[in-house]
Amino acid sequence: MPRRRAAALLVSAALGAALLTGCSDDVSCGVDQCTVTLQRDTNASVEVLGVEAEFVSADDDTVTLEVAGQQVTLTKGQQAVEVGGLQFSLSSVTKSAIQVQVSK
């Protein structure tokens, strides 16, 4: 029994590490989701969970990103949008940055 538990813990740790792979300074990851912060600069981009997300435009409540080659518009308070096998939802928009939640 202890060997099975140890093996299960190792597998869980490996899966957790796999989820965190691809996270950078602009990405904060938990077990099942990441928070992405993008500056509202031209060409600001980040890789999260193996998918590239690039800032395109924003207004007070809406952000357009290019994700995995597709343009997607996210609206604050609306349901997540699925792109590239991931769920994207808009958390906040400020004058200098946007924050997006990404989950598998």
Score class of each variant (00 low, 15 high):
92 S>M: 05
56 V>N: 12
18 A>G: 11
1 M>Q: 07
17 A>M: 11
42 T>A: 15
90 L>S: 10
1 M>D: 12
67 V>P: 01
61 D>M: 08
12 S>L: 15
49 L>W: 01
35 T>C: 00
28 S>E: 14
32 D>R: 08
78 Q>T: 07
44 A>D: 09
99 Q>S: 13
70 Q>D: 06
9 L>V: 12
11 V>H: 12
20 L>D: 10
33 Q>W: 01
2 P>M: 11
47 E>N: 09
92 S>D: 12
33 Q>E: 13
36 V>N: 08
79 Q>G: 13
28 S>N: 14
90 L>Q: 11
6 A>P: 12
81 V>Q: 02
53 A>S: 03
72 V>E: 02
57 S>E: 04
89 S>W: 06
95 K>P: 00
87 Q>K: 14
103 S>Q: 05
26 D>I: 10
98 I>M: 06
62 T>A: 12
90 L>Y: 11
32 D>C: 06
88 F>S: 10
56 V>T: 03
13 A>V: 13
35 T>Q: 10
1 M>C: 11
14 A>M: 07
8 A>G: 00
28 S>D: 14
15 L>W: 07
103 S>K: 01
36 V>S: 04
66 E>A: 05
92 S>R: 09
65 L>C: 07
85 G>I: 07
15 L>G: 13
73 T>H: 09
19 L>G: 09
17 A>E: 04
59 D>Q: 00
89 S>K: 13
